[in-house]
Design a protein around this nucleic acid. Sequence first.
DNA 1: TTTGTTGTTCGCAAAATTACGAATAATATT
DNA 2: AATATTATTCGTAATTTTGCGAACAACAAA
Lengths: 113, 113
Amino acid sequence: MAYPKNKTYDIDIEELARFAKAMGHPARISILRYLASMDSCFFGDICQELPIAKATVSQHLTELKNAGLIRGEIEPPKVRYCIDQENWEKANEAFRQFFSDIHPNDVCCNPEN
Amino acid sequence: MAYPKNKTYDIDIEELARFAKAMGHPARISILRYLASMDSCFFGDICQELPIAKATVSQHLTELKNAGLIRGEIEPPKVRYCIDQENWEKANEAFRQFFSDIHPNDVCCNPEN
DNA sequence: TTTGTTGTTCGCAAAATTACGAATAATATT
DNA sequence: AATATTATTCGTAATTTTGCGAACAACAAA
């Protein structure tokens, strides 16, 4: 853009957008999927799953942490990552509600109507 | 980045990421919400709902169209937009499945565990 | 034919994203 | 104390995103 200019949107819209944005990259979806399938997950394990450099993986993890979707804690010399239970539920609910807002027959310009 | 280097991920992961990315901006969430709440929706109506310039709205609409989440058809001199029923369901299902993959008690490093 | 309405496209600019290797920090091991 | 392991941060670069006003295109109305 340039100068953000304080565009404002509803809080819940901003929140859903933040969750969606965090999920808006295949590497980050992969990470979340992987974390969701494991009980124990170190940085190194995640790193091995992805076709990108560790520095980049670390950046993606930071974004997921900032969005609240994951947690990381140091277990020297490793770092253990996992899904953030509370916010994961929040995100789940936000998406669920969002999609439940529209029902097929409401739409007007799809071919079938 | 620089030179994309053909990072590959599973097809379904790519798809979910594309949907999420399209939803990763409050203006686009607003548009989708608005469309989901209306039967009839012209560009001008959408535009009035948002705190950004029409050129920018048009760009966001293009992104949503490219992601397959909406459709637009010309009804001179206006353009009618609506949710793309089929892909909306696809997206809904993709998110639903994604979130259903994790269950609270699987996680390992949340405070409660 | 000129004018008005509607929405897209163009040209531009600032900021954010994605990516990498190298350097660094923090801890454990020898 | 020196070395090895692990993961983050730094520096850099290319690309993408977001945004705007102005110009444009398409059609309707006067």
